[in-house]
Design a protein around this nucleic acid. Sequence first.
DNA 1: TTGCTCCTCACGTCACGTGAGGTGGC
DNA 2: TTGCTCCTCACGTCACGTGAGGTGGC
Lengths: 284, 284
Amino acid sequence: MTGTERLLTIGEFAKLTHLPIKTLHHYHDVEVLVPAEVDAQSGYRRYSFDQVAAAQLVRRLRSLDMPLPEVRQALAAPDEAARNQTILTYLARVDHELTQAQLAVRSLRALLEQQSYPIEIEHRRLDAMPAVAIEASVERPALEAWCARTYPLLDAAVAAAGAEPAGPGGGLYSDEFFELATGRVVAFVPTTTPLEATDSVGRLPGEAKPFVVPAATAAVAVHRGPFDELDRTYGALGRHVAERSLVVGGPVRERYLVSPADTDDPYELRTEVAWPIDENRRNP
Amino acid sequence: MTGTERLLTIGEFAKLTHLPIKTLHHYHDVEVLVPAEVDAQSGYRRYSFDQVAAAQLVRRLRSLDMPLPEVRQALAAPDEAARNQTILTYLARVDHELTQAQLAVRSLRALLEQQSYPIEIEHRRLDAMPAVAIEASVERPALEAWCARTYPLLDAAVAAAGAEPAGPGGGLYSDEFFELATGRVVAFVPTTTPLEATDSVGRLPGEAKPFVVPAATAAVAVHRGPFDELDRTYGALGRHVAERSLVVGGPVRERYLVSPADTDDPYELRTEVAWPIDENRRNP
DNA sequence: TTGCTCCTCACGTCACGTGAGGTGGC
DNA sequence: TTGCTCCTCACGTCACGTGAGGTGGC
């Protein structure tokens, strides 16, 4: 019996942690779980008992699909409080995604049972609107989080300018956003009067800028329900436009009549989708 | 205006369905969504309006992580009823997994908050037990489903033999099962008396065979809670055994004192884990 | 005619899993 | 000494994503 604790072979460690050997190899490669000791001659990995707890944590985090780089960071946290904070933040994200997924299941069941409402489309003249806007290149999966950050900034900018919002916020979506899954998005909040560009320090904080949502004629429909069902409304609008050989006249715009800021129930959401058309031209 | 409906370019189709062009390419490659028409000269893909609904279904199924081969099968179903059945079956699976994931989140939160109970280990002599058993090579992720199928078969076999179960069912788990994530598993249900091998037709239905769970001395602990937290108990047992330089004497065995057949709440589950040890030998 | 859209092909990514072929340890 | 455990290395998998380099369509 020496003072040094017994070390475990990779096979023993696998049995204790319920992590397959090949997975442990991988975690060594990417430095998520580095063995306490590696035999210089044979290359045999040896793990300490103290690594069992870490390995079990990795297994749990991976079962919740935390990416390995994030797992590595969590394990490398300076103290337990910091580590727990990282993990709890991630768990909040997972919680939210699980709720979304459950809604998606419900939604798909409803779709299969033909419970979906008919989509009504009308043509409407949209007047130009003064607004405050933030523009960015956004990746599709990050859109929701981006909006959650951006609209409060816009509201703050409107308030800071001493103005009033003139209606619900909205967004313009470039074609690339849909075709390449990443592209320009303009988020705007309309104002009663046009704002001037920053003429005194702090007038429009952050990236917010005065903006005019251009006038347009558009095919318009109101989408009811969660954002990830928007494809149904887009499909109906696109079909409507294409069947009539109408020419698209600019980026699609959405207005958030009932937004996530107004309700927690995705089925209460109301989104106006406007598909601008060029009245002076037709497709052959 | 001809009788043929207008077809959509891939860009238009992407916009309507919210599927990126690159993803549509991939779905063409693997024949999940084959364009209605492909221009022989240019290779340009053309999609029909009728494909929009299918594409939206694919998007929804993929957002729920249905593998593409399954998506293809669902779309290829002979009629709508068959298609819906396939999808609903999958949705039930997803529902279950989402619930499990939510439990995993809760469990991890509890772990971080140190809410875990202490694990008590005792050494115990386990007598040999007559039983009925089914043996198979099982992959780790499929274990739960395999057990759900197998134990009812064993119960039926015991009943068919006119015998009585002599206690809760259990399993023997080979080392490869843990180390390679796939290996031999024996599921058994103990019987009051030894059964004879099939001596009349139908005596022991299916793959069920008479079996004797060998006697052993073991370090034993009772695990409380969901199966995917079993690594905690395995870690404690493994540490206990290794620290005392005990030699492992055969496959780990579990007994399902309170099993999923008895409760729907994973926190009510009780699993006895026995780690056999060889009393006549010691590690150096 | 000029952009713009679309094309193919090869390679990258993420987290492993799957052998092949070979060596170390009790 | 014989298995058994463990090793590395290269390649495969799944569902795309990322350029490079090039052509078609209005």
